[in-house]
Design a protein around this nucleic acid. Sequence first.
DNA 1: TATTGTTATACTCTATAACTATA
DNA 2: TATAGTTATAGAGTATAACAATA
Lengths: 148, 148
Amino acid sequence: MSDAERAWACMIALFRSDEHLGRFAGAARETGLTAASMKALLNLLPDEEVPMRTLAEVLQCDASNVTQLVDALEEPGYAERVSLPADRRVKLVRLTEVGEKARTTVIDKLHEPPACLNALTKRDQAELARLLSKALAAADPPLDLYHP
Amino acid sequence: MSDAERAWACMIALFRSDEHLGRFAGAARETGLTAASMKALLNLLPDEEVPMRTLAEVLQCDASNVTQLVDALEEPGYAERVSLPADRRVKLVRLTEVGEKARTTVIDKLHEPPACLNALTKRDQAELARLLSKALAAADPPLDLYHP
DNA sequence: TATTGTTATACTCTATAACTATA
DNA sequence: TATAGTTATAGAGTATAACAATA
């Protein structure tokens, strides 16, 4: 197994951990959303209005699905539909203030590092962050962090 | 953001990438399994017989679900049910030879590192593998790799 | 005629409850 | 009486096809 493969295999193990899966489920519970609608919430950026159709592409799902996902986000007031005057067929989705806060809450929860990462020395943590940041910077297409 | 948080955020970005999600979907397609039954396949170890009930605990799902998942694995001949003579209520699940091969195929596919990790220098790759292996070794409960 | 979003519908995944066969 | 696995059934997620409004 190459070093890159070994490194990636370790990351996969971290993601499969009950610790991370638990945080994911916990974040969904806290916001009262399902896994699907929470993913939709995560993909809506603050101060950005996105057509339903575009959101379907981002989520890689059918447009008919997005209707129900946005319904689920509107229900607790996390998002709202806005008409686009220039093309009245299009509806834009945007986060409300409450939705932005919910999104931040979810992201903060998901970003809590597994305990074994926190157990590394400060020096090792810094080195790990440096190497992974370097890898991400080289990604094409670019990979975005939730909190840039 | 701490270094551990930054490192973890980078890993999350790698997992959300189309590249990885595509490999996951591709592995499912190649084996003719759904995401759910593929996860069941991954959690069956070669040369090991596990009661249905235990598999349900590992997968963190209801036992009734496992009946259908194992049905899905038996259909293409990836696994088979074996009776436990000592307690005739219990049915053990075990991989067939074909199932072991399918499992290896899936794991190899999932373990293909994202291109941007392969783009790091050999030295950086080695350092990354070293740091992540160190973190995993410190995990409690232990985190297992698919290919130990 | 083509496109956006919606609705109606069907299929899959998962859980709950009732059932069977063992213990 | 309790437990392992199954079956029947219902709820949620997602896709396809048909539809209304707009371009």
